[in-house]
Design a protein around this nucleic acid. Structure first.
Length: 440
RNA sequence: GGCCCCGUCGUCUAGUGGUUAGGACGUCGCCCUCUCACGGCGAAAACAGGGAUUCGACUUCCCUCGGGGUCACCA
């Protein structure tokens, strides 16, 4: 039916792009890419009062961060002349008229559409057949003046001029569809394919909004979320491919995406699951990529990530496994500074009194003896475990391993002592155990 | 209220007339283990209700109930 698919994302710059708002963009993007079509971004800035440049910038930055590259960019206000032209055409043809009315402050003029009062039926790709009686719409307003078209009129004209074949948007637009179709018919423009996405709702089941706690994409970025995870989770709220796999890259989703598998019912946004998606995507990153991301995050965006060498590479795999977000990773980086230095409190060494001083001291000395037999070049977690574990098992793992681990890390929580010992090397390991024993 | 949309575990979902109703997040338990994570195993947990069609309904139809969206010179 269509030579080529063209979809668009048309946000209004009246707020930062949030997790709910961007979803229509994600689906429109995925659909366009799946079909080898075009995806365009149009900033709907006809409301001069509320539109702000900073929001437009936020939208553009957010899309870039997510990786939703668009093939064309439009600003609705740039099409004013075209809007006026068609407004005049409609009036000339008797399909719209200038209406003089009272608005409380005095007489004003608006342009109203002459409603043919007919029944409109369309087949929504996700919902199926939907029918409306447009009589109740009356002669609705399509412009405040020739240079101030109202949303319904502007979208129709722009979508047609920009060649949009598939209008993919939120379900809150379903009831706007009949009046837009009426305008298209009056203008002699063919109807596009409509696909209305189920709404994302907050915990009270109402439409997710800024007021209801929808965070901006830029906030999630600052919180240490990966764009891959946001994209993946947001897409999976209301869509998913066949099979039980959940972790997908942007490319993989584009390959699998069809409107037929889009859900009809609203989906609730669950940050706990987002966190899980994020942790999964972090684990998927290579150590190099992860440390680059972490560097960018920890040092601020705009930094090159060159400073990643400041991070100890030995730490990266450990942190990657433990952190759910880059923010947690940054925290862990600070916590795991034991590679550089360590200071151990006696109390912690004895697990707050759970271990006898003499016992701990004895085990530390035993560990030293055992470790001395391990070659410097063989100082791997496995080898170390092989010599220590039998002894620990025999004498009580807790009483042996806890003091040893704390002696090495200086922390109540840390990776296991074998891993740390290996990272520190034989010399430093023995040194730390000795100084802990001395402290006792 | 009118019109429109929606209704499977708490949440995201699989399911298209015959299934022990499957998976994931979360929760709980166990294992791994010296701690913190990761990981593994397991448990609890759902077809809103009522009719109709059918030999047989989660699956089809109708009604009820429930939830939501929209009724702007905002998009």
């Amino acid at each position: 039916m269509y030579e080529k698919v063209v979809t668009r994302f048309a946000p209004s710059p009246t707020g930062n792009l949030n997790i709910g708002g961007v979803r229509a963009g994600i689906f429109a993007y995925l659909f366009a890419r799946h079909n080898g079509g075009q995806f365009i971004l149009r900033i709907e800035d006809t409301d001069k009062e509320r539109s702000k440049k900073e929001y437009e910038d936020n939208i553009i930055d957010s899309l870039k961060w997510l990786g939703l590259e668009y093939d064309n960019f439009y600003r609705q206000s740039d099409n004013a002349a075209r809007h006026e032209e068609l407004l005049r055409k409609l009036i000339a043809e008797g399909k719209a008229y200038i209406s003089k009315e009272e608005d409380g402050n005095g007489r004003v003029e608006v342009i109203r559409f002459k409603n043919p009062n007919k029944e409109i039926t369309f087949t929504d790709t996700v919902h199926g057949k939907i029918t409306f009686d447009t009589t109740e719409l009356k002669d609705f307003v399509i412009a405040k003046s020739f240079i101030e078209p109202v949303f319904h009129f502007a979208v129709v004209v722009d979508d047609a001029d920009e060649g949009v074949t598939h209008v993919i948007r939120g379900a809150d637009h379903i009831s706007n569809t009949p009046r837009q179709m009426l305008i298209r018919e009056a203008l002699g423009i063919p109807h596009p394919e409509y696909a209305h996405l189920p709404l994302i709702v907050s915990s009270d089941r109402s439409k997710l909004s800024k007021r209801k706690g929808a965070k901006a994409l830029s906030e999630y970025r600052d919180l240490g979320f990966l764009p891959e995870a946001i994209l993946n989770y947001d897409a999976f709220l209301g869509w998913h491919p066949e099979g039980e796999r959940e972790i997908y890259s942007k490319k993989e989703m584009a390959r699998k995406f069809t409107l037929e598998r889009v859900q009809k019912s609203p989906a609730m946004f669950d940050e706990a699951k987002l966190l899980w998606f994020n942790a999964q995507h972090i684990k998927k990153l290579s150590d190099e990529e992860f440390s680059k991301r972490l560097a960018e995050y920890a040092l601020g965006y705009g930094s090159t990530g060159e400073a990643k060498d400041e991070f100890d590479r030995r730490l990266v795999p450990l942190i990657k496994e433990r952190a759910q977000t880059l923010s947690e990773a940054k925290e862990l980086l600070r916590e795991y500074d034991f590679l550089a230095r360590v200071s151990v409190g006696t109390n912690m060494l004895l697990q707050n009194g759970k271990i006898e001083k003499q016992t701990a001291s004895r085990h530390l000395q035993a560990a030293t003896k055992l470790l001395e037999d391990v070659n410097d070049e063989d100082f791997t977690p496995e080898k170390i475990k092989n010599v220590i574990f039998p002894y620990a098992t025999e004498h009580g793992r807790g009483e042996v391993l806890w003091p040893m681990r704390v002696a090495l890390s200086g922390r109540e929580k840390s990776p296991d002592p074998f891993t740390i010992a290996s990272m520190l090397g034989k010399k430093e390991t023995l040194k730390r155990i000795a100084s802990a024993a001395e402290a006792l």
